[in-house]
């Protein structure tokens, strides 16, 4: 392939350029971004109106993605509102993941929910301290999160209170440690 070889020779010079290339997209008003901002504002308004100002820690756009950071104690309450409120109706759990941030001392759990009626995708996340990581379980709100929560419990080590069947799912039952934590090591000292 001639194109192939050309590519590889061009790359080293392009490499440094692209990183700066992707950055300055904020300058011109992006219609996608504005639409996302509108969604964000509307949902934030609804959450604040229903549950009060104190449940949300933050509401921001992660690259066109409306994201809400919920306080840990209001995690279940907020998601229930998102699920059952008529104007929200986020009925489809798309993805759930837990991420360990040892530098900040917390574990973040993110949930992507989609509204089939309004065609909106939002992310909600919450944070729990690394030691005794604990969250309210959402598996009764979305049955599909049952295993996702088990996986997070297994690999990241977040305990979900009220989960009907909180066992390890990937690792053997007598396994010690949580592989997706950043301080995990297979070499036991």
């Amino acid at each position: 392939m001639t194109e192939e070889s050309k590519e590889t020779t061009v790359k080293p010079s392009a490499e440094t350029a692209v990183n700066t290339e992707t950055q300055p997209k904020e300058e011109q008003p992006d219609p996608k971004k504005e639409a996302a901002q509108k969604v964000l504002d509307r949902i934030r308004g609804l959450i604040v109106q229903e549950l009060g100002d104190h449940v949300l820690e933050d509401a921001l756009l992660m690259k066109h993605q409306p994201t809400f950071v919920v306080k840990r104690d209001h995690w279940l309450q907020t998601v229930q509102l998102l699920r059952h409120h008529d104007a929200l109706g986020f009925d489809y759990p798309e993805a759930m993941a837990g991420t360990d941030y040892p530098a900040n001392g917390y574990i973040e759990v993110i949930l992507y929910v989609y509204s089939m009626n309004h065609n909106e995708l939002i992310a909600v996340k919450t944070r729990t301290p690394r030691d005794n990581a604990e969250l309210q379980s959402l598996s009764y709100v979305y049955q599909g999160l049952n295993w996702e929560e088990r996986e997070i419990y297994d690999l990241v080590g977040v305990k979900f209170t009220g989960h009907p069947d909180l066992r390890r799912i990937m690792m053997p039952e007598d396994y010690e440690g949580h592989p997706l934590r950043k301080d995990f090591s297979v070499w036991k000292e």
Partner: peptide, 8 residues
């Protein structure tokens, strides 16, 4: 081409 300008 089948490969665009992506950094290495």
């Amino acid at each position: 081409p089948v490969m665009g300008k992506a950094p290495k």
